[in-house]
Simulated scan of single mutants.
Amino acid sequence: MKKIALFPGSFDPFTNGHLETIERGAKIFDEVIVGVFVNTNKKSFFTAQERTEQIEKTIAHLENVRVVSQETDLTVTAAKKLGANFLLRGIRSVKDYEYEKDIQAMNHHLAPEIETVFLLASPEYNHISSSLLKEVLHFGGDVRNYFPPAVYQEIVKKRDSYEK
C-alpha cells in the first residue's frame, strides 16, 4: 500500500517552515498532498486560489507532492476522498503540541484508520507562524527570510496595493 500523507493547513501565507515540513514529508511518504483548507477562525490575507498557486510554484521541485484546495470537508473526510492514510502535521512548540494533540484525538475518533504523524520544526522555524509574520509585515518589519521567494513577491504586491 502506498503511503500517502495529507498536509492540511490554511497556509496564509505559506512560509519556509511549511515548506520544510513538506520537503521532509516528501522523503518519508510516497506522496504528500498539501491541502489548502479554510480556517474559520482566521481572516485570510490571500484567497484559497492564490495560496494554492503560490504553493504549487514553491513545491514544483518535489515530484511526489501536489496541492489541492477544499473548503467544505473535515480534514479526515478530505483525506479519505484523496486516498491519504496519514495526516502530516508540523509542531513548533509545546503550545502547538497541545493544540495538535486534541485535533489528533478527534481525527482518530472520526477515522481511526488514518494515522497522524508529527514532525518537529527545525530551530530556525520554531518561533514563526503565519499570523506573527503578518503582524510584523503590517508594521513594516522585514520578514522576507521566512517566505519562499514566490510567496514573498506576492505578499509585497498585495501589501503595496493596500497602501495605494
Rank of each mutant, 00 (worst) to 15 (best):
V65M: 07
N16Y: 05
R92Q: 10
R89C: 05
V34K: 06
D102F: 09
A150S: 13
A84F: 03
A150D: 07
Q104M: 04
A48F: 11
A78K: 09
K2I: 12
K158Y: 10
L133P: 10
N126S: 02
G35H: 01
E163S: 15
N126D: 07
L82K: 01
K164L: 12
I114H: 01
D73P: 04
D160G: 08
E53G: 01
R159A: 15
S69G: 04
Y152T: 02
Q70R: 09
E20Y: 07
R24S: 11
A60F: 06
S10R: 05
K81D: 12
E124G: 02
E63Y: 07
S129W: 03
P8I: 08
L87V: 12
T52Y: 10
E50V: 14
V156F: 14
T52G: 11
E113P: 01
R66Q: 03
G90P: 02
V76M: 09
Y97E: 00
K80F: 07
E98L: 07
T116R: 06
L132Q: 13
A60D: 13
L110A: 08
E115R: 03
N16I: 09
A48D: 02
T75F: 02
K158W: 03
N39H: 07
K27I: 12
A150F: 04
V94E: 10
I4N: 05
E23Y: 08
S69E: 09
T47M: 10
K2M: 11
G90A: 09
F147V: 03
F37S: 14
P149Q: 15
K134E: 06
I128K: 05
E163L: 15
I103M: 11
T40N: 11
F86E: 09
K164N: 08
R89Y: 00
F147P: 01
L119Q: 10
R51F: 02
Q49H: 13
K158D: 00
L74Q: 13
V117P: 03
D73I: 14
E23Q: 13
R144G: 09
D142G: 08
E163Y: 09
P123A: 12
S93D: 11
K158H: 04
A79E: 08
A60I: 13
K158T: 08
E56H: 06
T40L: 15
E50P: 06
R92C: 05
E20D: 10
A105F: 11
T40W: 14
V151P: 04
T47C: 13
N64L: 05
N64Y: 04
D142T: 04
R92G: 03
Q54M: 13
K2L: 13
K42Y: 10
V34R: 01
F118W: 08
R89S: 05
E20C: 11
S130N: 04
T75L: 13
H138Q: 15
V32W: 00
L132H: 00
L120I: 12
L87M: 06
F37V: 15
H18M: 02
Y97M: 14
K57Q: 15
R66Y: 10
P112H: 09
Y162N: 14
I33L: 08
G25D: 08
I91Y: 05
V65K: 01
G9R: 08
A84M: 13
H109C: 02
T40H: 15
K43F: 03
V151I: 12
